[in-house]
């Protein structure tokens, strides 16, 4: 009977000792878990900050790209307007060409004739180096002044 009681007390003592110190183990595991959770939370926070920075960068890049797209659209519009102008001018030039009977060499010779007549009216030779008013036919000659004339001028 005493042996049974003693063995029972012994088993109860071991269980009680385990129960006695279990709060310490719980506190310790709580502290460890808290620190692990804190570390994990800090890592996640860092990752979130990095993602936030990337998102901000992407937003700014997106804004820049939108601006570029807008300017490209404006450029495209102006290019289409210019193209329309060019087409109109080209059409007009073609119309004028066809009206002038379509012979460019004839136009060139007529221009040469007009220039030659103008030069005759002015008294110059056409197509030579004597077109200057200081040379050739009808050129203004420089005459050296005498001493008397210089004294009068001064």
């Amino acid at each position: 009977m005493e042996t049974t009681l003693f063995s029972e007390f012994k088993s109860t003592f071991i269980t009680s000792a385990h129960n006695y110190f279990s709060p310490l183990a719980k506190i310790w595991s709580f502290v460890c878990t808290s620190s692990r959770l804190e570390t994990a939370a800090r890592l996640q926070l860092d990752a979130l900050n990095k993602i936030e920075n990337k998102v901000l960068n992407l937003e700014s890049q997106n804004r820049d790209l939108l601006g570029l797209v807008r300017s490209l659209q404006i450029n495209q519009k102006s290019i289409s307007l210019l193209h329309a102008d060019f087409e109109r001018i080209n059409h007009e030039a073609h119309r004028i060409d066809t009206r002038i009977s379509g012979n460019p060499m004839k136009m060139h010779s007529r221009n040469i004739r007009v220039k030659a007549n103008l030069a005759k009216v002015r008294g110059h030779h056409v197509g030579s180096a004597t077109n200057s008013p200081l040379q050739g036919k009808g050129a203004v000659r420089w005459k050296k002044s005498t001493k008397h004339e210089r004294d009068q001028t001064s």
């Binding site: 029972e8 007390f9 109860t12 003592f13 269980t15 009680s16 000792a17 129960n19 006695y20």
Partner: peptide, 8 residues
């Protein structure tokens, strides 16, 4: 038993 163990 548990009380005695705890006191010890």
């Amino acid at each position: 038993f548990e009380a005695v163990s705890g006191i010890l």
